[in-house]
Simulated assay, not measured.
Amino acid sequence: MQDFNGKVAVVTGGASGIGKALVAALLDEGAKVVIGDVEQSALDKVLGELGSRGEVSGVVTDVSKPESVDALADTVFD
């Protein structure tokens, strides 16, 4: 995929490190990004930092729990 403009991307672990850098790059390319991360405070921080770069939202998600990942997917599809 070479054109991310208007596409929706989901990044788990996106509130820090490599995930956060990926979120920033996707926003810069015009993607709408949903961040899944286990820590609400980390999500709040990254949304504050990157919110001005594009459409980004966050959902508390524990990828070790299938029901949490299902809830993330339901949120994205809604």
Rank of each mutant, 00 (worst) to 15 (best):
F4R: 01
G54P: 10
D70P: 00
L43T: 04
A31Y: 03
A25Y: 03
I18M: 14
A25W: 10
V69W: 04
E29V: 02
V8R: 09
A71P: 03
A42G: 11
V23M: 04
G54Y: 00
V11P: 00
V34K: 00
A25I: 01
A24L: 08
V38L: 14
E67N: 11
V59H: 12
G17N: 12
A31C: 11
L72Y: 04
L72E: 13
V63G: 08
V76H: 04
A21T: 11
M1D: 11
P66M: 14
S57M: 10
Q2I: 12
G30I: 08
F4V: 01
V60M: 06
E39S: 15
V59Q: 15
D70S: 14
N5A: 15
A73W: 00
E39M: 12
V11Y: 03
V59T: 10
V11C: 03
T75W: 09
A71R: 11
S16C: 05
L26V: 02
A42V: 04
S64F: 09
A31H: 05
G30F: 04
S64W: 08
D3M: 09
L22F: 14
V38K: 12
G19C: 07
A31W: 02
E55P: 01
E55M: 09
L43Q: 05
L43E: 03
V34M: 07
E49M: 04
E29Q: 15
T12Q: 06
A21G: 14
V23Q: 02
G30Y: 01
F4I: 01
F77Q: 15
V56M: 11
A42Q: 14
P66N: 15
A25N: 09
G30P: 09
S16D: 13
G58Q: 07
G36T: 03
G51R: 06
E39R: 15
K7T: 08
P66L: 15
G48D: 02
D62Y: 05
N5F: 06
D28L: 13
I35F: 01
T75C: 11
L47D: 02
K7H: 09
D70C: 01
G36F: 00
D62W: 05
V10C: 08
F4G: 02
E55L: 10
E55T: 12
K20C: 03
G54W: 00
K65F: 04
V10F: 01
I18A: 06
V69Q: 09
V34W: 00
V63R: 06
L27W: 03
E39H: 15
Q2H: 14
G19W: 06
K20F: 02
Q40S: 08
K65T: 13
V63E: 09
G51Q: 05
E39N: 15
E29D: 14
S16W: 02
T75K: 15
V56D: 07
V69C: 13
N5I: 05
D44Y: 03
V76M: 07
E49K: 08
A9I: 02
L26F: 15
L72S: 10
L26E: 00
A71E: 13
T61L: 06
E55F: 00
D78W: 00
L50A: 03
V60E: 10
S64Y: 09
S57W: 02
K7P: 01
V8K: 06
V76Q: 07
A24Q: 12
G6L: 11
A73P: 06
D28T: 10
